[in-house]
Write a protein that binds this DNA or RNA. Structure first.
Lengths: 394, 394
DNA sequence: CGAATATACTCGTAGCCCGAGCATAAGGTG
DNA sequence: CACCTTATGCTCGGGCTACGAGTATATTCG
């Protein structure tokens, strides 16, 4: 097999440039001088790298606000003609879009209504939007990155209880544009956003969990999600922490899912399974302040959440756990039962310093932000920069 | 903070050399020509890299067996004066040692008896052995890498039910030598060995589980273990898959551990908890062929194993699962209940192509081999090669 | 023995990163 | 306001890697 020639050199050339862009995404307001220090670049090397990056329209510079003595430095900014990524978040109630520049910032955020919830219609809407953006930005648009409230397996959506969809092929969204489509689970992408720019930026191992209908999440290591062979990992809700006699809609038994969301609250209150477990759960949480039955149900569910998280801390040994969606509300509403179950489920040696459980920082924006970051990772990888440079060298 | 100067260039220089050594460890019998193809190196670059590596005593070459036409190529061999790593495996019944060369091969394997099982004595024996090896190999010895049947937290052993130890500081093993000591859980290291040179070498995501007393293991991604913030990850046995009323010696409740080893078999048979659950389990497995009570207990335990593994497949989405220790024996002895529980616990979309469950390839050697590989990773990282080159350039 | 084949070595070139030295633009000082 | 101090950017020659093209070498095949 003849190796694509000059591949190593051509790629290695963009090694430092890729690191510069990664540093910029971590700290969008980083100065040129601070970047050079962080990457151990001599000032000469910084001059060279940035000249190259300016030349191919990756970066631009603007004067930085002056702090103290010395020659003023500059702020690194995405180039006006630089690469962009379309981030999409497909949710039960609507879908959202935004454009991301290489500094990780989102532009033109939009919330779109579903005209219908049929997969074909929704995907057609997404495709239409992508095409419009592609026409407007032309070759500057390098990828589309899609967050979905569903289990993802490669390019396929395989199960979406929130949307009520069966298996659907997502590749059609990018059809006709020739652009790469990156698809990911919404909770996984939110976890990436938390780990890079949210509540768990320490850079090591972090666990993000989000309770909505069921429970999703991801483990991140150095800001990368552990997503398995086909991107279907992170199905924390389908660990059998619960009662084996309960059959889950996913097909398995005893899923943790069934113990931690609105369905669980309804079961504990002896009420029928709610059509929309999320709003139901919010209502029960509101009631809990005055209604002792509701309070008791909330406590039971919070304890189930805490006990499961303890098991996951035993398993993963994360530095931090971040909680999103109903998770933080449950913990706030019933912190004593949550903490008790959490501590009780930890292996003894973890109890000396149990990992902090924090509320997620990004809220509803997590999936969209995560999708943007993953898209930018793709677009600013060394090989992708080499391709871009060939197209855009003036 | 003044950056260590020339750091980037000095390290980048060994980038390709590190890749060559990684390729060699993956395939110790790789030819020079095949290596160049795999790494997309032109023949000129290969000549240069190898000359450099020979010069600093990292590699040597010997004629390869001739296959077909063309100028014969060579096999890459560790240099006679090249770096070595001491791999150690501390187990309940004995401890083992071997020296590893950069091709990943083990030399001088030894099995050592415990004179006593007191931590101080055992660690003193390990330290003595390391010192002897250090005297003999001098600066060629670059690191010691230790596998232990225990939970590890940083440099400390925090809990060892197999050894009956409480918290112990392991750093003393390398005291006086100035060498880095890398400590890891035995099941984690065995998983690394399986993923790189064992039964799951595809290179993606793999899950390795080993049942002895309780259950340990690790998830590997591209041959690297997911070990958490302090290396304490992989405690699969302490996920609460079991009965919450059971208190585990680890301090938590309902641990999966309690359902899958000799202790579980004894419970199901109405016998008292065995002092040595491993040999007890082997005995029950032997009996199961003729004794229906034993067979039933084995089936129950195999089903608990299968159901738990299904949950972990839902969670991690691995390509393969490898089973070591009693795990493979249990599955073989009760394959029908195992398979039924495994399939029943999978999310529906996994059932179309459930990940294969395979027996581990390395058996008892897994932890030692994994320790060697991790030590070599440390020693052949770019920065470490730069240091070595400064010392050994002739 | 010569042709075909596969591989290794040689050499000039392109391009990265480096350090040292110089240039530049601020704040501080008398 | 001139001049010093400080922090930073720019220039330039050097050291190094990887590359391609050309050449040399060691086999098998006919």
């Amino acid at each position: 097999m003849p190796a694509p020639s000059r591949q190593r050199a051509e790629t290695a050339r963009w090694h430092t440039a890729a690191q510069v862009l990664a540093a910029l995404r971590r700290q969008p307001d980083i100065t040129r001088a601070a970047m050079a220090q962080q990457l151990h670049l001599s000032s000469g090397s910084a001059t060279e790298v940035l000249a190259r990056m300016r030349e191919v329209r990756l970066l631009d510079e603007e004067p930085a606000p002056i702090r103290g003595r010395g020659r003023p430095t500059t702020l690194l900014r995405p180039h006006r003609g630089g690469p962009v990524v379309l981030a999409l978040d497909l949710r039960h109630e609507d879908w959202r879009s935004a454009l991301a520049t290489v500094d990780g910032r989102l532009h033109e955020p939009r919330v779109h209504r579903h005209r219908s919830r049929e997969p074909e219609h929704v995907l057609a809407d997404l495709r239409g939007h992508l095409r419009r953006v592609h026409r407007r930005y032309g070759p500057r648009l390098r990828a589309a990155s899609l967050a979905v409230a569903a289990a993802i397996h490669g390019d396929r959506l395989v199960q979406a209880s929130a949307l009520g969809w069966g298996p659907v092929d997502l590749a059609s969204v990018a059809e006709g544009t020739g652009l790469p489509l990156l698809a990911g689970n919404d909770a996984t992408l939110a976890g990436i956003a938390e780990a890079r720019t949210g509540a768990s930026t320490a850079g090591g191992t972090a666990l993000h969990l989000i309770v909505e209908v069921g429970i999703g999440g991801t483990l991140t290591v150095a800001g990368e999600a552990v997503t398995g062979a086909h991107g279907a990992g992170g199905e924390y809700g389908h660990l059998p922490f619960g009662d084996r006699s309960q059959r889950c809609p996913c097909g398995a038994r005893g899923c943790w899912d069934l113990d931690v969301d609105g369905r669980a609250l309804a079961r504990h209150l002896g009420e029928p399974e709610p059509a929309d477990p999320r709003t139901y759960a919010r209502a029960v949480l509101d009631r809990a302040a005055s209604d002792p039955y509701a309070r008791r149900a909330v406590s039971t569910v919070a304890a189930a959440l805490g006990a499961g998280i303890a098991g996951l801390v035993n398993l993963h040994d994360p530095e931090v756990v971040t909680l999103g969606g109903l998770g933080s509300a449950l913990r706030t509403a019933a912190s004593a039962p949550f903490d008790a179950a959490y501590l009780d489920g930890l292996m003894a040696f973890h109890r000396a310093r149990p990992p902090l459980v924090l509320d997620a920082a990004h809220g509803d924006d997590g999936p969209l932000r995560g999708a943007a970051l993953v898209g930018l990772d793709h677009v600013t990888a060394e090989a992708a920069l080499a391709t871009w440079a060939v197209e855009f060298r003036m």
